[in-house]
Design a protein around this nucleic acid. Sequence first.
DNA 1: CCTATTCCCTACAAATCTTATAGGATTTAC
DNA 2: GTAAATCCTATAAGATTTGTAGGGAATAGG
Lengths: 138, 138
Amino acid sequence: MLSKKTKYAFHALTYLGKNRENKTVLIQEIASTYGISHKFLENILLELKKAGMLGSKKGKGGGYYLIKQPKDIPLSKVIRLLDGPIALLPCVSLNYYEPCEECRCEVSCGLNRVMAQVRDEMLNVLENKSLADILEKE
Amino acid sequence: MLSKKTKYAFHALTYLGKNRENKTVLIQEIASTYGISHKFLENILLELKKAGMLGSKKGKGGGYYLIKQPKDIPLSKVIRLLDGPIALLPCVSLNYYEPCEECRCEVSCGLNRVMAQVRDEMLNVLENKSLADILEKE
DNA sequence: CCTATTCCCTACAAATCTTATAGGATTTAC
DNA sequence: GTAAATCCTATAAGATTTGTAGGGAATAGG
């Protein structure tokens, strides 16, 4: 399941995506729209900024704004940033690979292969759908 | 990511699946094979039994054994039993549906639809692959 | 019937991860 | 200079996962 962090990130991105014209939006405005804690959301927006999806401006009249085209923000990127691996096992994660502790041999591990298949199916959707697809339906 | 509980369940099922002939196997034997705590595994095997996948026998010479054909144990069943929902959002879960808290309207929720698609792709693998597919490759 | 063995059941403790909060530092507009 | 806003780091609170404890109930073998 997606964490609240990730869901909040999608909400924020959606909100900023609807608000075109690169006008800045206050953290507080997004937080109160969705009933999210200001400070919690602050951390999330900061991560999105560091990842190059958002820009910000400090001081009076400041706030956040989308720095990319919605179509250039695949859903997988947001999930990986805030939730970590998409795969169901660390040993088949493309971005967060780790060997499984209990698993003696990946080559002969039956789970490994099936889970790699699951991962591919998930990515097939999550890499190809973007913020633009979400915006289009809201 | 799959929990340890689920991974341990797959290990145990695999072990029992290799050991054909309906001979009983001790919890302790499986636990020490994979380095799992005896008591922790005990709880897991009990759940698998209650879900109708395993049979057991008490007393001397007792233990656990597979009660179904490996092909009749889809991976999705094991995951749902021990980990809960497979979907990434509660509002698109087939077996554990709950409305999303922050989400005002599912019909217009852009995430909802994409995540339903992800769920379908995952299930397409997890419902159709079974313990038999894992055994075959080990 | 008695005993050792093994699963059954429930409760709880420990560890980890997620969620939220706090408080000040820094930048900017006016 | 001051107020407004983001930036940054640390830590607290809460939830979930993982693991432990201890006795109950059934069974095999004598």
